[in-house]
């Protein structure tokens, strides 16, 4: 009985010691071992909030490896204040919310599991005022609240997700192991950002993002201005290539918002001052 329990751990130790596992590319044997470990642990497939946060941090490292943060602490702190104010109005106010502006001409924004939201300098420079920033951040915060990325990663990993989670549950104290298992999830997480979510997730995030902006006291129609900026951008502009390939068209997003919002947010539209963005003359 004891020997049976120890066997997976011993095999895992062997796998970890082998060079083949050094970069987290586990072979067929390793997968079998992990599967065994999973069944032994009878793990739940749900990840904890702590694991969700870790997952997001790993994907953030991958994204920031492609483009780092803009070298302007004032800008980074500013975006964090606006973002956290909105997140505090959401259903997950207590996540360790972190926001960042990536130094890239690309026009995009990313929501990562556990409350990390990154927007690009290219998008920031196209915003007209703070209500538009609130619209973008509200959209991304809504993805985090709905756990859209976590669900997409889980779906993309299929059986491996269970294995990965089980691996973490059985060896929680082993940081090395967690990191390696996470790495697979981080790659899949990046792939989810490259492939995009379901269109309905995006429409829902637009709608919820407008509501979050309104809750924060902003003109909720700021997001509409952003979508119109995107709509006016030529599709052959390579800076919008990834955003356009991962989202429904801006025109369809505007139409869906029009159908869902109607006049329901008019009462909140005029209250917010049109705030000047950090770094604008």
């Amino acid at each position: 009985m004891n020997a049976l329990k120890l066997l997976p751990a011993a095999l895992l130790a062997l796998v970890l010691a082998s060079p083949a596992a050094a970069f987290g590319r586990l072979g067929g044997d390793a997968s079998k071992i992990l599967d065994f470990g999973k069944r032994a642990a009878e793990a739940s497939e749900e990840i904890t909030e702590a694991e969700e946060i870790e997952l997001g941090e790993g994907i953030a490292a991958q994204l920031l490896g492609a483009a780092p943060l803009v070298n302007d602490p004032g800008l980074q702190r500013y975006v964090n204040r606006v973002g956290l104010w909105l997140a505090l109005q959401s259903e997950r106010p207590n996540l360790p919310w972190r926001f960042g502006v990536m130094d890239s001409d690309d026009v995009n924004a990313f929501a990562l599991p556990g409350g990390i939201v990154l927007i690009t300098r290219g998008l920031y420079e196209r915003l007209r005022d703070e209500s538009e920033l609130a619209g973008v951040l509200g959209h991304e915060i809504s993805h985090v609240v709905a756990k859209d990325q976590v669900k997409a990663i889980k779906k993309a990993m299929g059986r491996e997700w269970t294995v990965s989670v089980a691996g973490e549950l059985t060896q929680r104290s082993d940081n090395e192991l967690t990191r390696r298992f996470g790495e697979k999830a981080f790659k899949v997480g990046t792939e989810v950002l490259v492939k995009g979510l379901d269109k309905q997730d995006e429409y829902d995030a637009d709608l919820a993002g407008m509501v979050l902006a309104a809750r924060g006291g902003y003109n909720p129609f700021g997001l509409v201005g952003v979508l119109q900026t995107l709509d006016a951008t030529r599709p052959e502009d390579r800076n919008v290539a990834l955003l356009f390939s991962t989202h429904p068209t801006a025109a369809s997003r505007l139409e869906r918002l029009d159908a869902s919002v109607g006049t329901q947010l008019d009462a909140y539209a005029d209250s917010g001052r049109s705030g000047k963005l950090y770094g604008r003359p």
């Binding site: 204040r81 104010w85 006291g217 209250s271 705030g275």
Partner: peptide
């Protein structure tokens, strides 16, 4: 660079934003 809730509230207050 992360903000504390008080930082966020103070920014909102400076901007004249009220939660609704």
């Amino acid at each position: 660079f992360a903000a504390r809730p008080d930082d966020a509230r103070s920014h909102a207050s400076q901007m004249g934003l009220q939660a609704r």
